[in-house]
Design a protein around this nucleic acid. Sequence first.
DNA 1: AATGAATGAGGGTTCATTCAT
DNA 2: AATGAATGAACCCTCATTCAT
Lengths: 221, 221, 221, 221
Amino acid sequence: MSALDTPIRRRRKDARPQELLDAALELFVEKGFAAARADEVAQRAGVSKGTLYLYYPSKEELLKAVIREHLSTRIAAGAALADQHRGSTSELLREVFGRWWQDVLDSPTSGVFKLVITEVRNFPDLAAFYQREVVEPGERLIGRIVQRGIDDGEFEPLDVACVVHSLMLPMVMCCLHKHSLGACAPHDDHFDPAVFIRSHIDLVLRGLARQTGRPVGRGAR
Amino acid sequence: MSALDTPIRRRRKDARPQELLDAALELFVEKGFAAARADEVAQRAGVSKGTLYLYYPSKEELLKAVIREHLSTRIAAGAALADQHRGSTSELLREVFGRWWQDVLDSPTSGVFKLVITEVRNFPDLAAFYQREVVEPGERLIGRIVQRGIDDGEFEPLDVACVVHSLMLPMVMCCLHKHSLGACAPHDDHFDPAVFIRSHIDLVLRGLARQTGRPVGRGAR
Amino acid sequence: MSALDTPIRRRRKDARPQELLDAALELFVEKGFAAARADEVAQRAGVSKGTLYLYYPSKEELLKAVIREHLSTRIAAGAALADQHRGSTSELLREVFGRWWQDVLDSPTSGVFKLVITEVRNFPDLAAFYQREVVEPGERLIGRIVQRGIDDGEFEPLDVACVVHSLMLPMVMCCLHKHSLGACAPHDDHFDPAVFIRSHIDLVLRGLARQTGRPVGRGAR
Amino acid sequence: MSALDTPIRRRRKDARPQELLDAALELFVEKGFAAARADEVAQRAGVSKGTLYLYYPSKEELLKAVIREHLSTRIAAGAALADQHRGSTSELLREVFGRWWQDVLDSPTSGVFKLVITEVRNFPDLAAFYQREVVEPGERLIGRIVQRGIDDGEFEPLDVACVVHSLMLPMVMCCLHKHSLGACAPHDDHFDPAVFIRSHIDLVLRGLARQTGRPVGRGAR
DNA sequence: AATGAATGAGGGTTCATTCAT
DNA sequence: AATGAATGAACCCTCATTCAT
């Protein structure tokens, strides 16, 4: 009965902003912000062009809303997962970090990475926002995990910042690939990101592992 | 007079297409294809808008010329370097592969990666071209090197395709970063790609190294 | 309950059209018809946009209703005043005509003059209506008064139509000024319409006065 | 030969701004700024919509250019005329002032008065500009003339500011009329501004004239 | 070959008007 | 009767492309 209480108009009105954000993300990621037409965003959200402007004052504000929507919350969720983890650092990275990126990749959020990479230079406020809300918290989070592994004697004491990048950049790249080359039709490209993500973490963990036998790498020459 | 005059004019005239390509790459990478204006390309190349259209029949053809220009040759050069190398596979990856990526990053070619990622979905021909001319040759090249390391007993017999991606995706990501967030003003971000590239290769090589002692990784549990 | 309820609601409902007309006049005069938005009219009248359209079928009809409302009645009132007057024609003009214009200027009707001037060319029906209902009756009324002054030997026998315009145009102009420059902020302009109206009538009456001494004006040369 | 030297394109280019200003004034005066469409301005100037924007960056800047173009120079020209005059103050007003207004009325400048009256409230910068560049210089100019007439004993010592307004407001009103009611089709309105202007100045001069016989006006009661 | 004035289709945005609630 | 969400035609402005010079 309470569901019936809410008139249809109102129910639709409440849903509109999200529907518009979803449509906008899809289209902006697909074509880029400049090439995406406002009417097409509206159409894909099932409304007319004018309706879009009832909810967002301009295409640019829509872009910012799209980006804001997706990023900050994701990072916070990742941090919570990491804090809750009980077990070895290797396990934490393999299980939690791997699954988290897999989830991001499967969700529309993956597109936001492409969007940010593509559009930061046209919207400089984005740079500061993204650096502050996404890059830095994310790197701090993974950095702390890696550092813990070193402190615990599980990992070699390598440069933490570099390890963080070694771990994360391929993940981000998977997101970008999914929405660029990976979205183009003739897929003889047998690249499977799920397999790769696990494999990559394993490889990095092997590289991080405290060496008991003879050392490997530059120092060995 | 014509003796002195001609060569100068001729040289400038011959240089026009290249100057236009350079300017176009710069601008397309900076703003994206759709947001870059044809006049600004011309202006940055030091010619008028009309001249641009004497050399390229449309903005879209200019884009394709820009991309064609940069990619195929780079890969061939990389392959030649690899073939000439004498020494261990680790050294080959560290020295040749590392330096080669450093060179790409320092050159305008790095921007092409951003451009391709950004624009493939709007220009589907690009996808096939890039896949065929860049991705596949590049992956084959690195794949062969990794395979050789395995065959020589220098590397663990891990999944070659995955290792190739672990090696390359961060490099590509460095290129993208340079032209997006990395180009935005407030750089307290102390990310140094040169350091990272070496560090990343080292880490991957550590992960690839044939384990003489107890094994590490998933299989160890 | 309904006994108390009904009259209040009824009163408000009955008042709606007038409130809308008032708000519309205000806004149309301020911004011009084309630049005034229908929602703002409704909002200023304290109702929603939809309600406006319950009372007036279109913005244009609202404009016409606004203009019709204000003009005809004013003239009739002026005529009645003139007919009732007892005394010299000079006194009639000074007292009745002056006070009447002062009242118009102080009332929202003053805005209608601006509105008509501004909008006639876009709404040609307005021209005929205004000419027939306002200009002609008004000029006839003042014309008759001036003629009486001449007939009585109080005024020189000048061209009546011209004298009528000399009397009235500045008054109309005061109305326009009030709603254009006069409504703009930095008023070091110490123009006081009340003083001017009296002064202007005096000046014109001096000019109209039957000359007993040597003649003045063009004929004197 | 020098006429042939200038290529047609260039000749047209030099003429465009003025052609656009003329068309814009015409249309803005006719329909009002908001109701005038940019394409129609362009069309009336014989160019396409895009061309308009090669010369003026926005419709609003076009409006400001139109107004700036017409006003300041007119006033300066009037002042020069007044300074050159030799003869009685009455003659100066009748001959110079009257002819000057007649010229304004016959020229497109007359429309600018309507435009300013109509649009000041939407463009507040206009108010200051118009007050400073037109109203004040104009009133000072006429004020000085009237004052001279008083000082010379030619005029009664009436309030100068009011006399100035009595002289000028009807003239401005004639300009407005020409572009509003006066421009509407069914002209049984036999109002002839040329006749009225002369008649009005005569009437005011009669009112200003030093009374040698018994005084007239309020003071007479 | 080079220019840059001109074009006009196209996209962002507004707003009068409608209509389901 | 009243509301305000929704519509879409229309308007301002941009910019890829053309072409006379």
